[in-house]
Simulated scan of single mutants.
Amino acid sequence: MRSILEESMLERRSMPLENRPRLPRIPLSKRNRAVVRALNPMLVTYLEASRNLCEMDSTLFGAALAVCRILGAKLPISGRATQQSSAITAWRKIIEDHIAKARALIGRLTSFRSADIKQKLTERIDDLKQKIAAWRKRIRRFSERSRWFNQNRLFQSDQKRLYKSLERQEVYGAGPGPDQADTVAFWRGLWSELVNHNEGPWMEVVASQSASVTPVDPITITPENVAEAVCRALTVQFEISSE
């Protein structure tokens, strides 16, 4: 057990954090707890000899790795998660290969264009260009769909991180602001000067149709009307609450 512990600590001591394997979750059981309790006294010497937090972190990680190896837990390959996240997806690589081959074929057809087969070559080149445009749209559509999927999943797991990723730095224009007199003159020209609008003949049609409509008598609301309405509302509310 001590040899496995020392081997694990020496193996992972100089390894960068991003290359460390993701340790699996160990279920709680009597056997697993016994292994952990047996390794705890062995760590005292290594922890006391640690000169900084980095060495202490390496020691603790090596101990956790030793526990996984003793229990026979399956460990992932180091750096696999980083490689997968930065790798190009298979479907995108296939489409990009199609685009590269189509562009190469367009170049060859353009170089061999002659007068007798010019029409056929032109049609073939146009067809390839349309395919390239369709493939590029497919890549854009799939990329947007993947981005939406990742954002939805991130929203369910970590909303703060999602909102932070959606933030964009606003760029304001540099330089002096507008002149105050010009600003006042601009808005005064919009709101203060009278303008005669030509509404067109439809206004005359509406006016002739509305001539026979009897206007509504003006309604004057007094403070007594407001007080009466408020008292009536309070009475209804009291009756409902008492029921």
Rank of each mutant, 00 (worst) to 15 (best):
F186W: 10
Q237F: 03
N198P: 02
R168L: 00
N225Y: 10
P176F: 06
P215E: 05
A185P: 00
R161V: 01
S210K: 09
K160H: 12
S208C: 08
N225D: 10
A211L: 11
T222K: 03
Q209A: 06
Q169D: 08
M203G: 02
R168V: 00
F238L: 09
G200K: 00
S212N: 11
G189Q: 08
W191M: 07
D179A: 02
W191K: 04
H197W: 10
A174H: 15
H197E: 14
E167G: 09
D179E: 08
V195F: 06
R188L: 13
M203E: 08
W187V: 09
L234K: 02
V205N: 04
T183L: 15
K160L: 09
P215D: 07
W148H: 15
E228I: 15
S192C: 08
F155E: 06
V236R: 14
Y172C: 02
P223I: 06
L166H: 06
G175N: 04
W187I: 08
Q237V: 09
T183K: 11
A185Q: 15
P201H: 00
A174W: 13
W187Y: 15
V184W: 13
Q237L: 09
E204N: 04
V206C: 05
R153I: 05
W191F: 12
I221Q: 07
D182A: 13
G189W: 03
Y163E: 12
L162T: 00
E170M: 03
N225E: 08
P201I: 00
V205D: 04
Q180C: 13
G189C: 03
I221A: 04
C231P: 02
W187F: 15
S210T: 10
V171N: 06
F149V: 05
V236A: 10
E193Y: 11
S165N: 12
D158T: 00
G173T: 13
T235Y: 02
P223F: 08
D182W: 07
A207D: 12
V230I: 12
V236E: 15
A181D: 15
N198G: 06
S157W: 07
L234H: 05
G175Q: 07
S212C: 03
D217I: 09
N225H: 14
F186C: 02
R153L: 12
S192V: 11
W202A: 05
P215R: 03
P201G: 00
D182R: 09
V206K: 11
A181Y: 14
L162N: 00
L194Q: 13
R161N: 05
V216K: 14
P215K: 03
